[in-house]
Structure formats: structure tokens, C-alpha cells
Nucleic acid binder design. Sequence first.
DNA 1: CATTCATATTTTAATATCCTGATATGTTGT
DNA 2: ACAACATATCAGGATATTAAAATATGAATG
Lengths: 118, 118
Amino acid sequence: MMEGDSMSKTLDKNKQEIQSELYAKFFQGLSNPTRYKIVEALLEGPKNVSQLVNKLGVSQSQISNQLACLKWCGYVTCKQEGKYVYYQITDERIRTIMELARSMVADNANHISCCTRM
Amino acid sequence: MMEGDSMSKTLDKNKQEIQSELYAKFFQGLSNPTRYKIVEALLEGPKNVSQLVNKLGVSQSQISNQLACLKWCGYVTCKQEGKYVYYQITDERIRTIMELARSMVADNANHISCCTRM
DNA sequence: CATTCATATTTTAATATCCTGATATGTTGT
DNA sequence: ACAACATATCAGGATATTAAAATATGAATG
């Protein structure tokens, strides 16, 4: 049995493990091309599901599913307006993250495109 | 057969598709708890593989594999020093991205943790 | 040059994610 | 209440990611 320091150390570690999983899950939000494109599109302004379906040329069920995912992750919020549901970006920090990524990828595109490990 | 505008439109779309996949892949780098922890650890300063194995309590093969992945994605670079291989963060923009994520997750932790879509 | 320590690679099985198609829910206008 | 449209959810099979274990490569030291 564990006790004292070793116990609290274990608890700390689990806590940190949970934190890492949370952050990883957050980034997973942008780790799918369709979700990335949705976020990119919504940075231009709020859009409803049909508009996203048309703009991105992706099936409605997929758009809805990925939006649900982005909503859980905190990237977007939605509000119903008549028969349409409008989605919008939650937070301007997302724009900054996207811009940083864009500038980094611009410097590393060749590396990324040939990664075979994931 | 396609020609003229519709052709170049198609090419443009493919180009954009490739871009989205590239960005998505970039974010995939941080979308795994182990990789996230590695990046976090390396933001404190360069470390070799053994140090990461000890610090994170993850198997050596996994650390090496995830480092390879992070290297392809442009997050880290490495240099051999004697029998050790030291890894370090490529770019300070990564620190900014991590900090933004941390602050956003702090506001949305409850949402993320119960996401069942991915 | 053989041994030891550090790191990289490969294989495999478990699991997770993704996409599609079908269906359910919900809203509006008649 | 019904028809038409908008969105959400669910079930499945295909594919990708993950972690573990075994093995291979490479550097340093005696």
C-alpha cells in the first residue's frame, strides 16, 4: 500500500495525466481536415449547417458530427434561428492559434507532408 | 472533360484540400497526451531521450517514436552529443500555441472532457 | 573488437477515428 | 395535423493511431 508522499505524488501524476489528455483532446479538435476547414470558414463569420455543407462540399451528417465535436471542445457555439442553426467561433484566441500554425507550417510543410508515424 | 476555369477551380480546390490536411496533420502533433507532454517538457529546455523516458515514465520505444513524429511535424529538432541525442523545441511560436491552448482549455475543460465524438 | 549503454525501428494487436447511409428530431408554413 | 426542409444522431465497416515487445543500429569504453 502507498502512503504519505508517494501517495500524493501518485495523485499529482494522475492529475497531470488528466491535464495532458485534456490538452491533447483540445488539439485533436483541429487535427482533422474537415474540422479544420469548418473552423477556418467560421472565422470569416457565423454560418449555418447548410451553408457549411455547400461551402465545403462535405456531407451534412459529417458537418453536423464535426460541429458537435468542435462544440464539445469549445471551438464553436451555436444558436437556433428559425429552422437554421448558426455556428460561430467561440473565442478570438482560436484565430491566433490558427495563424501561428499557418506561419509554422509554411516553414515546415515539406517535413510534415512526409511524416509516416501517425 | 474539364477545361479552362472549371479545371483551375478544381486544381485550386485540391490545393486547398492539401493545405487543410497539412494544417490538420500539424495539430495532430499535439493531439496525443504523450506527445503533448514531450513538447511541454522540452519547453523547459533541451533533453535527451533517456531524460524524457525518466521524466515522463513512458517506454523508450514510445518516446523515440513520438519524437520522430514531432520531428517530422517540425516541433522539435535533435542533435547528437556523444551517445546521447538531445531534442529541443524548434520554435518559440510553439510556446505561444501551448499557452493559448492552456488558457482556452481552462475556460472549457468541462466541455472537452465529455466529448464522445472523436 | 567486444561489451555496454543509448536510441531507433519494426511488428502486431487493441483501440479509436472517420465516413457513409439511414433514420430520427425539430422547425416552419399550409 | 401534414408536408417540406434543416439539423442531429446512430450503426457499420474501412482505415488510422496507439502502445508493447522484440530487435536493430549506433556510440563509447575498456
